[in-house]
Amino acid sequence: MALGQVSVNNLNLSQGAVTAVERYFLFIGAGAKNIGSLIPLNTDSDLDVQLGIPASDLKTQITAARLNGGDRWACLAAPIAADGDWKLALDKAQQQGYSVETVVITTPVVAGAELTVMHDEAVELANTYKRNVFVMTASKGIDPATTWAAYLTAQKAITKDVLAPLVLVVPLLHGNDLGVLAGRLANAAVSIADSPMRVATGALLGLGPVPSDSEGVPLQSALRAELDKARFSVSQTYPDYPGVYWGDGNMLDAPASDFQVVEYVRIVHKAARRIRPLLIRRVADRRLNNTPNSMAVNINALMAPLRAMAKSTTFAGQVFPGEIEPPKDGDIVLSWTSKTAVEAYIKIRPLNCPKDLTANIALDLSTDDTE
Rank of each mutant, 00 (worst) to 15 (best):
I192H: 01
A193I: 05
A193G: 09
A193P: 05
P196K: 06
P196F: 10
M197W: 03
R198S: 04
V199G: 00
V199K: 01
A200W: 02
A200D: 11
L204M: 01
L205S: 03
L205T: 00
L205C: 02
P209G: 02
V210L: 07
P211I: 04
P211D: 03
P211Q: 00
S212N: 07
S212R: 11
D213G: 00
S214T: 11
G216H: 12
G216I: 07
Q220S: 13
Q220W: 00
S221L: 05
S221N: 14
S221A: 12
A222R: 02
A222D: 13
L223N: 00
R224S: 04
R224K: 07
R224Y: 00
R224T: 14
D228W: 14
A230M: 08
A230E: 05
F232C: 02
F232M: 07
S233F: 07
S233M: 10
Q236F: 04
Q236G: 12
P239V: 08
D240T: 12
Y241K: 12
P242M: 08
P242Y: 00
P242D: 13
V244P: 01
G247T: 06
D248I: 13
N250S: 10
M251P: 06
L252Q: 06
L252A: 11
D253Y: 06
A254L: 11
P255Y: 10
P255M: 10
P255L: 03
D258W: 11
F259D: 03
V261W: 02
V262R: 01
E263C: 04
V265D: 01
V265G: 06
R266W: 03
I267H: 04
I267W: 05
V268C: 06
A271S: 12
A272K: 11
R273K: 05
R273H: 06
R273T: 04
R273Q: 00
R274D: 08
I275P: 09
P277W: 03
L278V: 04
L278A: 04
R281N: 15
R282W: 04
R282L: 06
R282H: 09
V283I: 15
A284G: 07
A284D: 15
A284I: 06
R287Q: 14
R287D: 14
R287Y: 15
N290Y: 08
T291H: 05
P292Q: 14
M295S: 06
M295W: 09
A296D: 04
V297L: 13
V297H: 05
V297G: 04
N298R: 10
N298W: 15
I299Q: 04
I299A: 08
L302S: 01
P305K: 13
P305N: 12
L306T: 03
L306G: 01
A308K: 15
M309N: 03
K311C: 15
T314S: 09
F315A: 15
F315P: 00
A316Y: 12
A316V: 05
G317I: 02
G317N: 08
Q318W: 07
F320H: 10
F320K: 07
P321Y: 01
G322A: 10
G322Q: 08
G322T: 00
E323T: 05
E323S: 05
E323I: 02
I324D: 14
I324S: 11
P326I: 01
P326Q: 10
P327W: 10
P327K: 09
K328W: 01
K328T: 07
D329Q: 14
G330L: 14
G330Y: 03
G330C: 11
D331Q: 11
D331R: 05
D331T: 01
